[in-house]
Amino acid sequence: MVDRQSNAPDSSAPEPLSLKAFAASLYHAARADNYFKFLKNFSEEDLASFVQGLLRQVGDAIDDSSTEALARFVEQGQVAAYVPTQTATPFRPDFPDAPFAPMRRPLREATVALFSSGAIYLDDQGPYYPAELTYEQAVRDVRKATERFPSLRIIPAQTPEERLRVGHVAYDIRAAQKDINVIFPLTRLRELAQEGVIGALAERSYSYHGLTNIPRLVQESAPQWAQMLKDDGVDAVFLTAG
């Protein structure tokens, strides 16, 4: 029988949630949130400072009816979180050289293809993660969601926006769902072709999922895709990173 007057701690009560534990839960875990998962990289103290600053910015955004300063604050947080982690690794080597191919014709005469790692696909194509996973499950289990063999989706030039889908599991896709041009500017490039800024948008543009088997991508897929673009006869390629 429980002594209701006792001050002894209840051993079944959950541990208090620290800021670090909360931030960790955003990173493809229980509270998965790709917008703010970068918080996982902060120390407890830096987290506290960021959250305090964020709350201040939210108050100002409400009062000023403006989110520009808030957006800048979050962007600076992402930079602070991610920049120090990007050191040379076998998957991200510090290449000593940089291939360079000059434009062979003026931009206003050039056929430009769009190529994105943002995991865009058509409504009659499958997403890049296994069919047995929902998107939310794929976000929480990136190992299962990571492709073993990089796959490519062909996106024809005249594809209407309403047929485009986005299924990247490692960045927050809400903005792309509202306006795909934030990462796959097919419509914007069509417009620029009509205006004569570029000669033409290529008949075929492409997307893949950046969360894939990187050795296979580098050694097999990328060279194949490059040859495919050569066969397409494009003059330049516009790439966006997801």
């Binding site: 970068f38 962007e75 992402q78 930079v79 979180a81 991610y82 920049v83 991200r92 290449f95 940089a98 291939p99 360079f100 191919a101 000059p102 434009m103 190529f115 994105s116 790692s117 893949y208 950046g210 894939t212 990187i214 991508l217 580098v218 990328a222 060279p223 895709w225 490059a226 040859q227 673009l229 050569k230 494009v234 003059d235 330049a236 390629v237 516009f238 790439l239 966006t240 990173a241 997801g242």
Partner: peptide
């Protein structure tokens, strides 16, 4: 980030590329 690898492969085939990256 794989786009850099893909861009290099395309450029090596003689097709000019430009990548858009965020500051982070």
């Amino acid at each position: 980030m794989t786009v850099g690898h893909v861009a290099r492969a395309i450029e090596s085939r003689g097709i000019p590329t430009v990548c858009v990256y965020i500051e982070a």
